[in-house]
Amino acid sequence: MNGQTRLSWTDVRDEIRARILSRTYAPGDKLPRDEDIAIELGCARTTVHRAMQDLSQIGLVERKRKGGTHVMTDPVTRATFDIPITRREVEQRGSKYGYQLISSTLDDTPMPVMARFGIHKPCQMLHVKALHLADNRPYIFEDRWVNTRSTPDILNVDLEVESANEWLVRNKPYSRVDVRFYAMNAQGESAKYLSTTAGTALLVIERTTWIGQDPITSVQAVAAPGYQLTALN
């Protein structure tokens, strides 16, 4: 990335982030010293320092005064919201976690999903439906769309074994997330998979993520009756 023009801190940030996303720097890896990156990229050390500060703030790297900079093992990208791993959420409540893949197909995006992503033409994405369980009872029904252009590696994941939720949190850091909370009445699939009667009030957590301008995933996580959302500061 050496060139004639002087790089800005955002240029350096984007280059390091690209290396993390491409697994040039894998989770847990120690990054080169700021001084070495500055020499490689032909910029000032202070420029690298500012870029690393931003990457630390969004949760991609961890910086320690004498320990250097490491790629986060479980990147949560704290832009505005920490996306939980549902398995951990269940286990932290003292329950036994279970998971069932309902379906995984390549489908054309419907209008509501296009609106969430801000795209104007239908395109094929991976459509995943799955059920998370706590103590063998329905916990969250997940209806998810994944953009395979920005996230092609998802096609190599055995979603029968590992949930898209957990794989994406661990492997696909994001730069932006939109989150909506709303209530809906159980009907159709939500009533069926959450084992509840039609008309029951359910909490929906809708999350959509991007990396730069590229959509990553949009999910409607419909929680079973009695679900409680807890935030700790």
Results as ranks from 00 to 15, higher is better:
L7V: 05
W9K: 10
D11L: 00
A26E: 14
A26C: 08
P27L: 12
G28S: 14
D29E: 07
D29W: 02
D29T: 03
P32G: 06
R33F: 02
D36I: 01
A38C: 14
I39H: 12
L41P: 01
R50V: 08
R50F: 13
A51G: 12
Q53R: 15
G59R: 11
V61I: 12
R65D: 02
M72F: 00
T77V: 01
T77R: 10
R88G: 09
R88V: 03
Q92Y: 02
R93C: 08
K96T: 11
Y97F: 15
T105H: 15
D108F: 02
T109A: 10
M111S: 13
V113S: 07
V113R: 08
V113Q: 01
M114G: 03
F117R: 01
H120A: 06
C123A: 09
C123S: 14
Q124Y: 05
V128K: 09
K129P: 01
A134Q: 14
D135C: 11
Y139P: 04
I140N: 04
N147Q: 10
S150K: 08
S150G: 13
S150E: 08
P152Y: 06
D153G: 06
I154H: 12
I154P: 13
I154G: 08
L159K: 07
E160N: 07
V161H: 12
A164N: 09
L168K: 14
V169Q: 11
N171F: 04
K172F: 06
P173I: 03
R176K: 06
V179K: 09
V179Q: 00
R180P: 00
F181V: 00
F181M: 03
M184W: 07
N185Q: 15
K192S: 09
L202Y: 04
L202H: 10
L203S: 10
R207N: 04
T208S: 13
I211M: 11
D214A: 12
I216E: 14
T217E: 11
V219A: 15
A221F: 02
A221I: 02
V222M: 08
V222T: 15
A224N: 08
G226T: 00
L229M: 02
L229S: 00
A231F: 03
A231V: 06
L232F: 02
